[in-house]
Design a protein around this nucleic acid. Structure first.
Lengths: 237, 237
DNA sequence: CGCCCACTTGAGGAGTATCAAGCTTCGTGG
DNA sequence: CCACGAAGCTTGATACTCCTCAAGTGGGCG
C-alpha cells in the first residue's frame, strides 16, 4: 500500500513524441513495455493467487473472471469486453482467475508503469467504478432473482446497446422489437455466471422458447422475439 | 425520497491551516468544505438515483449499501466500516442507497474537491479495489454457497481481525478458539445481505446453537464456541 | 403490567439441484 | 462422403433445500 506519488506536472500541450512517461492512456498502450497478446479461446491469462505484476486491457474479444471454492464450485465474477481493465487486485496477488471466452487481443501493461500517474489513476478509476456498478447489479441477480429472471437478465445483457440499465428504455414497445444474440459462452459458463446449474439454464431456455420469448436460430445463436417483453420478465423493470 | 441529514459541522480538532489544495487525504478530511455528520441508527444518507455530488467516508460506525427491485425485493450490496468510502458511482447518480446500521460519524467531501487530484485518486483507488475484492467474494457466497455456509461466512466476517481471508489462518486450532460477536444488524438486514429470508437466517442460527457451534449470550450477541470449526463450515476453507 | 415489535418455530409447498438417460453437433478418420 | 466417437446440450424423474404462510414466543418500553 505504499503508493509512490509521482506528481506528474501536466502542462496543456503534450506534443509528446515517444515520451519516457506517456501522458495519456492511449500513449501508454503503445509504450515499449506494454505487450500486445493474441490469445485463443479458453486461454487462462492468470490464476487466482498468481502475482499481479501486470494489468490487462481487453482490446478485442471477451474475458471471464472467476473464483473457485476448495471443493470445485465455481462462480464467474465478471465478464469483460473491449476497453475493460482487469488484473489489478487490492493486494499483491490476483484475487480471481481470468480466462478468455473467445479468441482475444489483450494489452499487458506493467503495473509499475501505471502506479503513481494521475492520468492513469483517473482512467483506472472510471473502469473500477463501472465494475463496481456491474458487481452490485450482479449481487442483486444472485441474491434476489429467480432462475427465469437471471437468464432473462443475462440475455438482455447480450443485446447490443441495451446493457442492463437502458434495457427497456430504448425503443417504443411497438412490434418488431427483435434481436439476435450470439452465445459465445458454454452452458456451464453461463450457469457459473448466474449461480445456477447447467440443467436449469438449459431448461429455462427451452421454456422461453416454448413460451414464445425466444426462437432458435442455431445452437449458439438465439433470436429474442420481443426484447421488451423479455426485459419485463427480468425482474429489473 | 429526501431525508433530512443533520449536518453537524464540528470544528474542534485540527488547527487546519486552511489549505486551498490539501496535499494529503487527511488534510482533505479537515478541509473547509468537508463536513462532519453525526447520524443516528437507520439514517438514510442517500437513495438510489440521488445526484452524487458528495462522497462519504465512514469515520466511526457502520453503513449498509443496498439496491431494491421494483417489486420491493432488497439486496444489501455492501457493508462499510471506519475508513471505507462510499457515494462515488460510475455516473452522475447514486447506483445504490446508503443507510447507517448504527449511530455513525461520517465525513462528507465535495466530489469536485477530489476529482483531478492525483493523491486523492490514488487513495480512492485503493478503497475501490478493496470493495471490488469484497464484492467478488460476496458473489461467490450468493451464487454458490448454501444457507448454512452463508451464515457461517457472515459470522466469520464479524469476528474481529478475521475478515474473510485470514479467517482460519490466525491461531493454532487448539482449544479455546472462542469469539464473541455483536450483531448490530436486524435479521432482515442479515437476510437481505445473504440473499436469504429472515426465517431461514433464524433457523440456521438456531441450528448452529443446537449443533454446538454457537452459544447465546444475549439477543444481539453471539458466542462462537470454536471459530475454526465454524470457519471450516463456511465453504471457503 | 401489557403492548408491540422483532425474532423463533412449524407445516407445507415451490423451485432448483441431482442423478440418469437420450439427443445434437462437430471433428476425425476410414 | 459417411461412420463413428466425444463433448456439449436437452429432457426426465426424483430429492432436497429454502421459501411462504401462519402461529407462537420473548424482550424492551411506555
Amino acid at each position: 500500500m505504499n503508493t509512490v506519488h509521482t506528481l506528474v506536472d501536466n502542462r496543456p500541450s503534450i506534443p509528446c513524441d515517444t515520451v519516457r512517461d506517456p501522458q495519456s492512456w492511449e500513449a501508454l498502450l503503445s509504450a515499449p513495455r506494454t505487450k500486445t497478446m493474441r490469445v485463443t479461446q479458453h486461454s487462462v491469462i492468470y490464476y487466482e493467487g498468481d502475482p499481479a505484476d501486470r494489468i490487462y486491457q481487453v482490446v478485442d474479444g471477451a474475458v471471464m473472471l472467476f473464483k473457485l471454492l476448495p471443493d470445485g464450485r465455481r462462480q464467474v465474477v465478471g465478464l469483460l469486453g473491449p476497453g475493460d481493465l482487469f488484473g489489478l487486485p487490492a493486494g499483491e496477488d490476483q484475487d480471481s482467475a481470468a480466462e478468455t471466452l473467445v479468441p482475444s487481443v489483450l494489452k499487458a501493461i506493467e503495473r509499475r508503469d501505471v502506479e503513481g500517474s494521475a492520468v492513469f489513476q483517473a482512467h483506472i478509476n472510471g473502469c473500477l467504478l463501472r465494475q463496481i456498478a456491474g458487481l452490485r447489479d450482479h449481487s442483486v441477480l444472485l441474491g434476489r432473482k429467480s432462475a427465469f429472471e437471471r437468464v432473462a437478465s443475462f440475455l438482455m445483457y447480450l443485446v447490443p446497446g441495451r446493457g442492463l440499465g437502458e434495457a427497456c428504455a430504448g425503443r417504443p414497445d411497438g412490434d418488431d422489437d427483435e434481436a439476435v444474440v450470439r452465445i459465445t459462452m458454454t452452458r456451464q459458463e453461463i450457469a457459473d455466471y448466474l449461480g445456477l446449474t447447467i440443467e436449469t439454464v438449459s431448461r429455462i431456455i427451452s421454456d422461453m422458447k416454448r413460451k414464445g420469448f425466444l426462437a432458435a436460430d442455431r445452437h449458439d445463436r438465439l433470436r429474442i422475439v420481443d426484447v421488451c417483453a423479455l426485459c419485463r420478465k427480468s425482474g429489473s423493470h
